[in-house]
C-alpha cells in the first residue's frame, strides 16, 4: 500500500514537471502553428543555471528564478529574430528551425559545462509523513507550483484581455487580427511566457535527476508525448495528459521498471490509433488538412 501511495506522489511530481515543460509546445502549436522544440533548450538551461547557482550560492530558488529569466529572455530573442520568419510557412520549417536552435544550444552547453552529468542538491530534505508514508517535501512543493501555474494560466487566459486574445487566437487567428490586435505582440508574449515556464520546469527538475547535456532529449520525447496525447493546442488536454503520464511513468515503473520509459509511448500510440487528434485535440487545428 505504502509503495503505491508514494508512487502516486512521485507520479504527481513528474506530471508537474511534464506540464510545465509541455506548455511551450502546446501553446506554441495552438497559437502560432509552430512546433516549438527549442523549449527543451530552456529546460536544460534552467537546470544548468540551477546547478551553477546552487554550487555558488547554495540557493536553489535563485537558480529557479534565473532559469525562468534566461528562458524568457532567450525565448524573446529566438521568437523575434528567427521564428518571425517561419510563421505561416510549412510546419517543417518551424520544426527543423527550432530543433536546430536546440542543437546549437546543446553544443554550447557542452562547451560551458562539459559532458559529465552534474548532481544538484535538493533545497530541502524534509520528509512529510502522510498515512504512514514518508513523502519528500520538495516533491510536494513542485506539485504545488505546477498547480498554481495551471490555475494562474487559466485565470490569465479567461480573465485578462490579453489572455482572451490568446484564446481567440488559438481558435481563429484572423478574428484577432480583425479586432485590431497586433497578433505578433501576442505571439511574442506567449512565447516568452512559455519559454520561462520551460526554464522553471528544468530548474525544478534539476535536484530530481542528473543534469546532463542530453537531458533535453528525453524530456523532448516526454513533452511530445504529453502534448500529442492531450491534443496539440489544448491547455486542458496538456494538463490532463501530464497527470496521466506521470502516473504511467511512476506506477508503471513500480510494476516493471522498463515501463517507466516506454509506458508513455505505448499509451500515446494506443490513444492515437483510436483518436488521431489526441484526447482533447481539435480536429481542424491538429490535422492541418484544410489549411
Amino acid at each position: 500500500m505504502s509503495v503505491w501511495l508514494s508512487a502516486v506522489v512521485y507520479g504527481l511530481s513528474t506530471s508537474a514537471i511534464l506540464f510545465l515543460v509541455s506548455i511551450a509546445l502546446s501553446v506554441g502549436y495552438g497559437l502560432m502553428r509552430i512546433v516549438n522544440l527549442e523549449a527543451m533548450l530552456y529546460y536544460s538551461l534552467g537546470a544548468y543555471l540551477t546547478y551553477t547557482l546552487v554550487s555558488a550560492t547554495g540557493s536553489m530558488w535563485l537558480g529557479a528564478f534565473s532559469g525562468v529569466l534566461v528562458g524568457a529572455a532567450l525565448g524573446f530573442l529566438v521568437e523575434t529574430q528567427l521564428l518571425r520568419r517561419v510563421y505561416g510557412k510549412n510546419m517543417l520549417f518551424s520544426m527543423v528551425t527550432t530543433f536546430s536552435v536546440y542543437l546549437i544550444g546543446i553544443g554550447l552547453i557542452q562547451y560551458v559545462w562539459g559532458l559529465n552529468p552534474k548532481p544538484v542538491a535538493s533545497p530541502t530534505d524534509t520528509m512529510l509523513r502522510f498515512l504512514g508514508v514518508a513523502i519528500p517535501l520538495y516533491r510536494v512543493i513542485i506539485i504545488g507550483i505546477a498547480g498554481i501555474t495551471y490555475i494562474g494560466f487559466q485565470l490569465f487566459l479567461n480573465r485578462t484581455i490579453v489572455g482572451k486574445a490568446i484564446r481567440a487566437g488559438i481558435e481563429n487567428r484572423d478574428h484577432v487580427q480583425a479586432l485590431g490586435i497586433n497578433i505578433y505582440r501576442i505571439f511574442t508574449l506567449t512565447f516568452v511566457l512559455a519559454s520561462g515556464l520551460a526554464g522553471l520546469g528544468g530548474a525544478l527538475n534539476a535536484p530530481l535527476i542528473m543534469v546532463g547535456p542530453y537531458m533535453g532529449n528525453d524530456m523532448l520525447l516526454y513533452a511530445f508525448t504529453t502534448v500529442i496525447l492531450g491534443g496539440l493546442g489544448s491547455l486542458k488536454g496538456t494538463f490532463v495528459s501530464a497527470l496521466i503520464l506521470g502516473q504511467v511513468i511512476s506506477i508503471g515503473g513500480t510494476i516493471w521498471s522498463p515501463l517507466s520509459f516506454v509506458g508513455p509511448f505505448f499509451v500515446m500510440f494506443t490513444v492515437l490509433i483510436f483518436k488521431p487528434n489526441g484526447l482533447f485535440g481539435v480536429k481542424g487545428i491538429a490535422f492541418g488538412f484544410d489549411q
Binding site: 502549436y29 512546433v35 510546419m91 517543417l92 520544426m95 528525453d218 523532448l220 520525447l221 511530445f224 508525448t225 502534448v227 500529442i228 496539440l232 520509459f261 516506454v262 509511448f265 500515446m268 500510440f269 492515437l272 490509433i273 488521431p276 491538429a286 490535422f287 492541418g288 488538412f289
Partner: peptide, 21 residues
Amino acid sequence: PVLIRLRGSYFTLVNAAFCAI
C-alpha cells in the same frame, strides 16, 4: 498505416518516440 495517417507534426513526433523505443 499507423504512422502515415498521422499528419504533419504528429508524424514527426511519433516517429521520434518510436526511435526512442
